[in-house]
Design a protein around this nucleic acid. Structure first.
Lengths: 386, 386
DNA sequence: TTCAAGATAGTAAACGGTTCCATTTTGACT
DNA sequence: AGTCAAAATGGAACCGTTTACTATCTTGAA
């Protein structure tokens, strides 16, 4: 809405409305601005007259405990009584208060998802499926982003004790926790696409993942098989061991080694998992004139940025440079040229994560570790050389 | 991890572990498979010995209510007592049980986000900011996806009554609700990037949005100003009035009309907001040989798909076809060529949504409607013709 | 020294459920 | 009809807080 439109709109407003510009300084990073239309509302929403279990009991002419039994399908209730109660419940659209229920049971039905970076398209896709599956099981989902540097387990602990959570799914990142810390959680949990730095006994946790080393090995081997020798690698390498980036680097190195290609650190660039960083990293690499003929990016987002760098340098893909990404996000397929990638079955991984979690909640005592197979998807961003 | 790797890994496992393939049929849509390693865990996490307010009171040597007053900063407590209690709270890492608190207060501090399609990159970005802002205010965030066809308000109502929610943010979609239905919610709420079908009194709700008509008008006018006459438009048009797609269509039509170009329905394609649909729609359009020189897509995701269709048909962008998208997602910038777009300040919109919500929670009675300005971002996917 | 006022702390009653346990009802079998 | 186990139901304690109300302790002025 441009200024003129708003000014015009202003004239048509009832006199009771105020109009004033929003504080622009607050949004320095955007040229956006806005106007606010205000009007005191006379009718603040009244909470619909709440019913509680006592009301339902009274109306149905039964005891409180009977209503509870009907609602929870616990204990024995005669069909007549059950029908009577359910009718009243339906009529008054009664919803049990979960705070009370959780308090009494010292356990809620809420699942928490601790995730690193909601907006990462690969995660976003998994989150979507997690929400769907959790919701399908009648449980609400709480999402919390764990910023860099915060202790994921500690954050989850806080939430668990505060809310008496049912279970937790941890998604993405590298965890530096000991077995004791995991045990402290005290509720079922699953680690999805997470690498652990400490050597934790597999019996102490469940996980869903792919084999990053093997996957990167697969991608690199593929490029080597096409005749490439100068293959660069773009990923994030924090000062920690066993991160996703480092594990994929391992696979990259392993492939080089197996094919007698010497590992050249100059071909490896540190970059965040986003197009802008991939773009910058690829630019840096290209400017070094290392005779690069192929790029392997540890995420499709990086690959997209790198591809842009290549194409905007006047080089062609795969004519001059071959590119293989990682993740298998939709956008990579619709890039032009479509990007080859190591695809992770994100939806299935999310699905299985929730399944494992609910099995644990249901009392399963054996932790499971599901390792999915990644897939090399060839779409035409790499070609044979020599 | 390929089969061989797993077989090898199997041999190194202690005998107590079972290994068996996951049911592949469950994942028909993916060629993924997985093996599961199982081992009964002997030490199921013990819940850390929970403390309650009574324990803290006893240990601190004060009354329960005093502890409560300290924790809530309510009432008057002497500095000595306060320090004493806080020390104990800290020492035992005591976290108040929010179920009990919420039950007593008949209000929780939980915010719910009802969103259509978490994985849409534009929404994902906003969700990220909403989570950040809500979290910053010390409140947990619950996310629920509203599938097509489910009543958003009814779903929220259920959650509100069950969890005594603090507030709700509705994000995306077209709502067909009356003022009464909104009022029923009974808690503060904000509609973000939502269009309403019924004519609801603006005093009854708060909203954050851009002007879709104006924005589409801007994009179309831009293409017209470059000399284009055969401009197609790709968006989703459900059988409802006043959807985002329909509003943008209005702007598109308005621009055509103002410049004396006759509206041709054949140039308008119905398609979902995803690359694959944009691709298919653009293919359909191109095959009709309508002499299209420009495409305006109602989302960048569509634009990316459409661009792919254009490029893979051997046409060039912007040489043969100019393209303008909508939203301003990062991927569009890194497409090659970078896609022109109507950019929405998503982060700011999310930010303001949370601000409005918490103002309402704090007792503000005036509903606000913030209309952000969208921006035409020119990056080179359109060019002058004739 | 006494006492009222003000400050602080403690008591106990909710909040809305679940669930153990006691009681009533039912009905099959002597 | 009487007996008794099983089935159905109701009563009440409790989950961990908040908060109104009451009790106690200071403190300083009379």
């Amino acid at each position: 809405m441009c200024i003129e439109t708003i000014r015009q709109l202003e004239k048509t407003l009832p006199a009771s409305w105020e109009t004033f510009p929003i504080d622009v300084d607050e949004f320095k990073n955007s040229s956006a601005f806005a106007l606010i239309f205000k009007q005191p509302s006379d009718n603040r929403g009244e909470v619909a007259n709440e019913m509680n279990i006592k009301d339902i009991a009274k109306i149905s002419g039964v005891g409180i405990s009977t209503v509870s039994r009907v609602l929870n399908n616990s204990g024995v209730v005669s069909d007549t009584t059950r029908a009577k109660v359910l009718a009243v419940v339906k009529q008054y659209n009664y919803v049990p208060n979960s705070n009370a229920r959780n308090l009494k049971k010292t356990q809620s039905n809420t699942i928490a998802l601790m995730v690193k970076g909601i907006s990462n398209p690969f995660f976003a896709n998994m989150i979507k499926e997690v929400e769907r599956q959790v919701h399908l099981r009648g449980c609400p989902l709480m999402i919390q982003q764990v910023e860099d540097g915060v202790d994921e387990i500690a954050a989850a602990m806080q939430l668990i004790r505060e809310k008496n959570l049912y279970g937790v799914i941890f998604m993405g990142g590298t965890y530096d926790h000991s077995e004791e810390e995991f045990n402290q959680l005290g509720v079922p949990f699953v680690l999805t696409t997470i690498t652990t730095m400490k050597d934790v006994d597999p019996a102490a946790f469940s996980s869903v993942s792919i084999d990053d080393v093997q996957s990167a090995y697969k991608a690199t081997s593929y490029l080597i098989s096409l005749g490439h020798r100068n293959i660069c690698f773009l990923a994030r390498f924090p000062f920690m061991a066993n991160t996703i980036g480092n594990r994929r680097l391992l696979g990259y190195k392993k492939a080089l080694e197996e094919h007698g290609i010497e590992y050249d650190p100059a071909l490896v660039e540190d970059c965040e998992y986003a197009p802008s960083f991939g773009f910058a990293a690829a630019k840096r690499l290209l400017s070094k004139n290392l005779g690069i003929t192929a790029m392997f990016a540890a995420s499709d987002a990086i690959a997209i940025g790198a591809a842009k760098a290549v194409l905007s340098s006047g080089l062609s893909i795969p004519g001059d440079v071959s590119i293989v990404g990682f993740d298998g996000i939709e956008m990579a397929e619709y890039y032009h040229p479509s990007l080859d990638t190591i695809s992770q079955p994100g939806v299935e991984m999310a699905h299985v994560s929730v399944e494992i979690l609910f099995d644990l909640i249901a009392g399963e005592t054996a932790n499971r570790h599901v390792v999915f197979e990644s897939m090399l998807v060839k779409r035409g961003s790499s070609r044979k050389v020599n």
